[in-house]
Amino acid sequence: MNQEFKKTTFRDDYTFYNSPESIRRFPFPFWEDKYMYSVNIEPHVKGPAGSVYEFPIDINEHYVSEMADRAIVLKEDPLRCQALPHMMLAQWDFLELLMTSMARDYPQWFSLTTEGDHWHWINKPLGIDQKFTFGDPSTLPQEPMEYIGRQCQGDFSIQDQRDGQLWMDAGIITTQADWSLDFDVGMNFMEWHGPVPLAHDMKVFDRALKFLLNLQLGQPVRRLNWTMTINPRLDTSPENFHKWGSDRTTVTPENVGDKVHLRVELQALFRLPRSNAILFSIRGYLIKLRELVTVPKWGRRLPRVLGSLPMELIDYKGITRYRDTTLEWLAKYDDGQPTSPGGGPD
């Protein structure tokens, strides 16, 4: 992806859109015509060139715009970035993983040179040139997690591992699907997943936790999650729910294609080397339904999935008010033909 970075917005006038290439590489999350929770975890290995799986950290055409949006969120609400005191080593682990990945996989934009603990980081798209001492927070303008988190797409939380549990003890979370880092910080895996319906009874979290506690260094894993968002709004936080919640009432048969977005999270988990913590990256992708239906397979499949969702999930994902209008609009794209297995376009 050697494109220009777009200058679009995720608030106010909402000028966000995807290029045709960006649509083709969208990680469509439904591999069959229905959806239910599962521990759909797979190795986070290198995928096809140009795909969102090509590199561990995916940087795309929205990079500069997303970082500008993150800066606005952090300016208005610094509590979106928090780290408990014992997480400093994990913060450095996190910074190292991001800088080395980004510099290795996108040398045209990022460079990292190291001489012992003396590091030199250059971020060309954001115009940053920083020399610092690895391990010394006073040599960076922010703590390491915030510093590099402001320069990488996706939300990040860092989990400490102790007592056979994972504890969400740090995070930089500005594009979340309706959960609060400030409220959840310090919770364990079961606690922060508390509000998710159905999945607890299915033992999804027990199995996922057992799996993650054994996550190995150098063998990251990934899964997709999804929800729907009205307007291409990244900051769908509970903190601002009273500001964006009413958007859900603005969907009409005329504006479905432009207003309703499928929001997919490519979630990846990495074991960190020094702290033994686990990094959870939540890389969000937005696509307008008008863009989505340009892929015929997705246009067929999405109405089938939305039409067969359990009521609890519809409520939990906040789709209730506009599901019917959306389904009516999508109906014309489902010609009844069978769809091929897997999520990718035909």
């Binding site: 959840d184 310090g186 919770m187 606690e191 508390g194 509970p238 919640g245």
Partner: peptide, 22 residues
């Protein structure tokens, strides 16, 4: 008032109930 509880905050979470339609 939700059942979601934070030990660190010693509090349950309250979320605007009429955010969609005031």
């Amino acid at each position: 008032v939700r059942d979601h509880y934070s030990k660190r905050r010693a509090a349950f979470q309250g979320v605007c109930v009429d955010a969609e339609v005031r």
